[in-house]
Design a protein around this nucleic acid. Structure first.
Lengths: 188, 188
DNA sequence: GAGATATAATTAGGTGCCTAACTATATAAG
DNA sequence: CTTATATAGTTAGGCACCTAATTATATCTC
């Protein structure tokens, strides 16, 4: 379990444990240095992944957000309202408007006014948009799978579990100080 | 181990496993749905954390990047070259210039021309900058620690290990298709 | 109906980070 | 010495996403 002969993650990751410890010691804080290390590494990983993701999707003339919008459309019979898209993607409606603008310019989606509610403008996945998704699927999913290829099946389950709990903990950054997200899921 | 009575990560996370599976089935791809789920969840977590981080640092009048720059300065006796900062932070020199511009405007760092090399302009952590770090340290580190508070000590080690390997795998998104990440793990 | 209020989408403007081009200085080659 | 090349930092312009304000439509209350 804790024998450090083989599975050390001494990848040249930033920051190191000593670096975290030094920061904490400087102010005599009663904080677990490894906790800080986990948090910092996750931040670094998130930033790296975000950047890599943009590079990945740019190969297909898309951005991360625009791909996610197309994929969500595909998952919903090719038609959704901007507000639904915003909800599903976890971004604002303003952001969705911007994504649609470019996708429409490139012919991957189109807008259609609703007869039910004059305020609504449904977004439609065009045939060209569907074709784009079809064409990129093999490479896209192969790369995603390769990304976690260094983890075996069991490790993937463990990672999902741990990542899920850390994700819950992210609210500690934004919420009230001292309010623990304990066991129960706080679906804000 | 695989009894699903307690440790289910049914956090309302997006996407779900069925969602990932549906996408793969649509194109008859030979891909492990859980691998896609791990990749997607990590992307979502990274984005969420990045956003939360900006909110966190904005409480102190900083951004994530500007805090990291200040902290790195503090770790290097309060003086560094922009190129060193760029290296340490993993961003471009252009980005560092922008970060310094605002930090200097706010009086947290200053620039000083070098006598050795006329091209260099050292960045200095001002007393006000050091004070800012000192003041925010308790809350900052407490929040980071709270973020991983749902993981016990052992789980943190495991998470670090797994995260490290997935981080290595990120190169699968940007590199040559089919080229395995160099970290040669022998337990496959 | 008329006004107040709610909602859908958009526009306007801002932040963070990027790439590529540029300026100024240093160094190497002839 | 002069010209070519490399390097440090900055500037210019772009993308993704945000918040706040705006426009247009719907609905509720009188």
């Amino acid at each position: 379990m804790n024998n450090n002969n083989k599975i050390i993650n001494d990848i040249d990751a930033i920051p190191s444990l000593v670096q975290s410890k030094r920061q904490i010691d400087r102010y005599n804080l009663d904080i677990d240095a490894q906790a800080i290390l986990v948090a910092s590494r996750l931040m670094a990983a998130g930033a790296k992944l975000g950047h890599a993701s943009e590079i990945h999707f740019s190969r297909f003339g898309l951005s991360t957000g625009r791909y996610r919008l197309l994929a969500d459309l595909e998952d919903n019979e090719g038609e959704e309202l901007p507000s639904q898209l915003a909800e599903h993607l976890g971004v604002t409606r303003a952001t969705v408007t911007g994504l649609i603008d470019i996708l429409e310019r490139d012919g991957l989606v189109s807008r259609r006014s609703s007869s039910d509610d004059g305020r609504q403008r449904a977004v439609i996945l065009t045939e060209e948009g569907a074709k784009k998704l079809r064409e990129m699927a093999p490479e896209h999913f192969a790369r995603l799978e390769a990304m976690v290829g260094l983890l075996n099946i069991d490790e993937r389950s463990v990672f999902l579990d741990l990542l899920g709990r850390v994700t819950q903990g992210i609210s500690a950054l934004t919420g009230e100080l001292g309010s623990k997200p304990k066991g129960n899921i706080s679906n804000e």
